[in-house]
Amino acid sequence: MREITYLEAVREAMTQEMERDEKVFLIGEDVGQYGGAFGASFGMLEKFGPDRILDTPITELGLTGAATGAALVGMRPIAEIMFMDFLTLASEQLVNQAAKLRFMFGGRATVPMVLRTPAGSGTGAAEHHSQSLENWFAHIPGLKVVMPSTPYDAKGLLISSIRDNNAVVFVEHKLLYKTKGPVPEEPYAIPLGQADVKREGKDLTIVATSVMVSRALEAAKTLAEEGIDVEIVDPRTIRPLDAEPIIQSVIKTGRVLIVHEAVKMGGYGGELAATIAESRAFGYLDAPIVRLAGRDIPIPYNRTLELSAVPQVPDIIAKAREIVQGKV
């Protein structure tokens, strides 16, 4: 199959959906001629014109609200927030309005919108441009939160997100933008709320999200050489969560390591751990449920510190070994 990058997959999903449905439009800072800070919409202005590719001044709250309002009257906006850190600014319209309008109005309103945003560290962008805040939004009833880890998932999940009748926070990872993988040319939809087993194994389940999926896959290779056979489950959407494949995997392996980039305290790993502990998988556990996550600090600028702030491949290998060797 043809291989394209994660970034191209995002662009292709937006482009194909905009061709299919004229209610879909893109709004965000520098999404027009500039093509988006990371290039996600490069060339789309030329294709769709300024009425459907809306460049905004610096107005995170305003543009998120504009998307919400347009959705309320039947449009299907895609809003791009340049860095996930700036969802802090967009939050009022997203959390108080977009997420709640339908419920508040007795189910008599629909807000079909997508808020796309790149998250994560690794580019030296420091404290204000590196956060992973997905769990803030997973906490909000009315929002869906999607975190693709491959180009294939990015395209299929973005198409589903655009077609979904709810407000979807679509979390891309900066470090994944340049990664390549097979992606069908025709449009396809991956249902939201469907986890994916990225690698089968029998000794240990690793539940990983976003960029940590590729790190876990990398770690699995080394672990395999040591005779540790890892199964990797990617929830892909953290709200709604498809818990069953995770539970089944843990029943099979008896051990689970949860890996994410966000800070451990209050991170999604807690939710996953609790979901497993509350499930029938509990009785099958041969080791404590372990979380490996970002350190309890903001993301620092210095390269070495930045790398050390979030789980890297060697950290995953070491933690997996400890679990399998009964050292936790």
Binding site: D85, L89, Y301, N302
Partner: peptide
């Protein structure tokens, strides 16, 4: 080395800092 170009500050010297967030 924690802040980099976008966050240089010298609070004691009266420079309360650059900012990565516009506004």
């Amino acid at each position: 080395g924690r802040g980099g170009s976008m966050h240089i500050a010298d609070v004691a010297g009266g420079n309360l800092g650059a900012n990565g967030v516009v506004g």
